[in-house]
Design a protein around this nucleic acid. Structure first.
Lengths: 188, 188
DNA sequence: TAGAGCATGTAAGCAGTTACATGATTCA
DNA sequence: TGAATCATGTAACTGCTTACATGCTCTA
């Protein structure tokens, strides 16, 4: 079950900042939330519908109607207070699902080359993400005092930096340990 | 969809080490895999059934039948090669779902006390987990050269240590940044 | 004797992913 | 003219969680 549809709050949170279309919500998610909360169209559009009929959001009449049809939504007072109530509730503990570690845990059944390749791929992804986050960080740092939004955005970026730094560090140590482990044995 | 039922490999991987019952599989998961791959009875028992009818595992006749009824399973050759093939395939990139960061990202709509409390709770969980992992680490370190199993087990523990250290570090910095941010403003 | 732990399982239901369907606009 | 992007949506399916149901054994 997952107990609660968090996509509701992705949409509510983004619309609390400014009115947007479903497509724009997806773009924002890809740009800023993807790192810790990804979601797709197949979930966004149906959730928008539900939020509309529940009165949490409403269609927002756009004056400019250029390009393809585009439905903009705005948060309602009811939606805003729903969001605020949710922010007061403590977050659930993280439930990590890290396939790499699952494979690694059982890798004794396999040749060491596979876990090593796997960790190298993992490290590659981590450093790619880290590079991107470093850029974000540099542009956000000077303006964190400008608004609360910037501060909290920056904190999520900082989280990502710490995370991917840890991933990179671990990858390096893990690969070395695997190498050292097989060295004394494979002298035959 | 998630594309593939990974619980299959949790069971196959554990049974590859030694025959076990469904209940014992759950205990092992709670002890060693929970940190990166949690799963419940509601998923384990049906998956066992499927694996049985697919010929990946089979019931293992237990000679000792004391206590409550207990069905032990063993991996078959077919199951073992299925596991090995899976280990060769690169792991999918991690898809993080971190509710704390989702709340934090939108926390400008809320009073700073809530994100701070939330981060403190997060930090508390992280240091609790870290303490536990440090104990595991100490007992595993001297024996990592004894077997591949120990090495790979240790690597997952090391991952957890790096992860929760990063979480703790981030929590401290984040709380400080929120405090510093509001300080100059709340002088009224 | 009552509760904790051992042990196995089913049913309901939502979350989330993937694939598909449709059509407009922009630009090379 | 064809590809990329904008834009909105639906259908199918599965993973996973939660709650429920059952009964045994050990021990304080």
């Amino acid at each position: 079950m997952g107990r609660e549809n968090k996509t509701i709050f992705v949409i509510l949170g983004l619309l609390n900042h400014e009115p947007m279309s479903g497509y724009e919500i997806k773009k924002r998610v890809d740009l800023s939330l993807k790192m810790f909360w990804d979601t797709g169209f197949g979930q966004i559009y149906p959730t928008i519908k539900t939020l509309c009929s529940d009165g949490f959001i409403e269609t927002f009449d756009k004056s400019t109607h250029l390009g393809p049809e585009k439905i903009q939504y705005a948060i309602t007072e009811k939606g805003r207070s729903h969001l605020k109530e949710w922010l007061k509730i403590p977050a659930e503990p993280v439930n990590h699902k890290i396939e790499l570690l699952l494979k690694l845990f059982f890798s004794a059944a396999s040749s060491p080359e596979y876990p090593i390749t796997n960790i190298e791929k993992f490290r590659g992804e981590a450093s790619k993400n880290l590079e991107l986050l470093n850029l974000f960080s540099e542009s956000l740092k000077p303006i964190i005092d400008d608004s609360d939004d910037h501060l909290y955005y920056y904190l999520t970026v900082l989280f990502g930096q710490k995370l991917y730094e840890a991933y990179t560090e671990w990858s390096n140590e893990a690969i070395e340990l695997i190498h050292n482990h097989q060295d004394p044995k494979n002298k035959n």
